[in-house]
Write a protein that binds this DNA or RNA. Structure first.
Lengths: 254, 254
DNA sequence: CCTTGACCTTGACGTTGCGTTAATGTGTAG
DNA sequence: CTACACATTAACGCAACGTCAAGGTCAAGG
């Protein structure tokens, strides 16, 4: 099969201009040029383009991509590890930015007048910088401990924000559950609130929700000692209590 | 106190060029220009520069910064909220990239030959593109940007091997289910084999497995028209049949 | 007074990865 | 034969400066 620029571009979901540019910078040369000067691409070029686009998708610079695709002996994995480091560094900076922006928004919405705020803008930045210097490392160390959890969450398609939310919810569930357990009544307000929180928490992990699955999961908690250990940490019998509350909440018993 | 470009630049930790550029694009004009044409900055300019640098630090575009510093009535907080959204979006994309890069490294180090890997990568890319072309817009309209990203993240979050396996399994399930449905017996060998395949398939998407959750999910399929449409495509009633088979397989009824 | 070296000026090109005209030639269907 | 869709190269534009280049200015030292 042979392709002109536009045909190949459409197949690959890019613009003809991109293909000409890739030709220009020696990243992807056409198989041949016909009598009218048209670029003609063949199978091999299609494959190479797919490779190029794959790396591009990963955010690798075209200059680096050329290294990868042009020399078959080039260590692509090493290049990717290198690239990963850059991305991680980028994310650290991005996280810092986001954190600073949020702090500023809070300060701005805290009722300061615009002029006052302007006056203190420079000072505030210094304060934020100081804050970062003092606590940044500590926060990062804490953050780092959660890395495993986070990457696991990512596998399931959660954004960091969602992960945050879910973590907060989990804590709230623990607390509410403890209070509810003290009442001894799985049909009571507190227990039902716990079940509701648990539903919300679940929905971060399951894309959709059904009462049946929720009820099934509650029973699963009782059956699985990993969950039992987690929920029963402080008070034995908590898991059964949670299951009962959820079964009442969902109106379903297994 | 008065400053020339270099002195101010040193104070602020930026380059003289940057100051000239800021003058050029009307972001920070010097207080006056002396007889030799030198730029002279005063206290006020120092303050404004600090503001500019503060917003720049937050990654705000210079064009937007001009809006902020030039009009005192401008809603800086709103601009920051806007900006925060952009940053969060950026981070989501970055997380996706990092996840993909890590998967690729794993695959590359997992002993696959380069050629096989390359072939697959092209294929996966195509799948995502096709999926986007066919369902992208529709999904986006229904569930918003996030849903699309999430489902793509999930698709990309699996290793190539896992993805391949899951895809094969899904096909096998469809086929086996059709055959089983023809027998009309949800307790028969074919139906039970289908349920077993479905369990294996599920485990690619759920980290853990429980009979209860599986049984609950089966009922959820029946309840949710999205799933009904998917499974009932060829033969109406297939979903109920599958649910019955799974309930027998798990020994659990909701 | 002259030189040296550090500083200042404007002007203009380079960076990345293409998008977007512009001006012009080619292929094909009706 | 005429549209019309497609192809070509050349060129500027984008963001935020870095980096020469060519030249003027200022304070210090011989």
């Amino acid at each position: 099969m042979e392709y002109t620029v536009q045909k190949l571009a459409r197949m690959a979901g890019i613009s003809p201009r991109t293909l000409r540019y890739y030709d220009e910078i020696d990243i992807l040369k056409p198989a041949r040029i016909n009598s009218s000067g048209y670029r003609i691409y063949g199978e091999q070029e299609v494959n190479q383009l797919q490779q190029i686009l794959f790396y591009r998708e990963l955010g690798v610079a075209l200059e680096d991509i050329r290294q990868i695709v042009n020399s078959p002996s080039f260590d692509g994995a090493a290049a990717l590890r290198d690239h990963r480091e850059k991305l991680l560094e980028k994310r650290r900076q991005l996280d810092l930015l986001i954190s600073n922006v949020e702090k500023t928004i809070q300060a701005a919405e805290g009722g300061m007048t615009m002029t006052d705020k302007e006056k203190f803008e420079g000072f505030k930045q210094k304060m934020i910088d100081e804050n970062e210097k003092t606590y940044g490392k500590e926060i990062r160390e804490k953050y780092g401990e959660n890395a495993v959890e986070q990457s696991y969450a990512k596998l399931k398609g959660m954004t960091p924000e969602q992960h945050d939310e879910a973590t907060k919810l989990a804590e709230e569930i623990q607390q509410t559950l403890a209070e509810a357990y003290a009442t001894g009544n799985p049909a009571g307000d507190l227990a039902q609130k716990t079940a509701d929180l648990h539903k919300k928490w679940l929905m971060f992990y399951w894309g959709s929700y059904s009462k049946e699955a929720h009820a099934g999961l509650a029973q699963m908690y009782v059956d699985d000692e990993r969950f039992t250990a987690y929920y029963d940490k402080n008070q034995p019998g908590t898991v059964e209590f949670l299951r009962d509350a959820i079964h009442i909440y969902t109106g379903i018993k297994n």
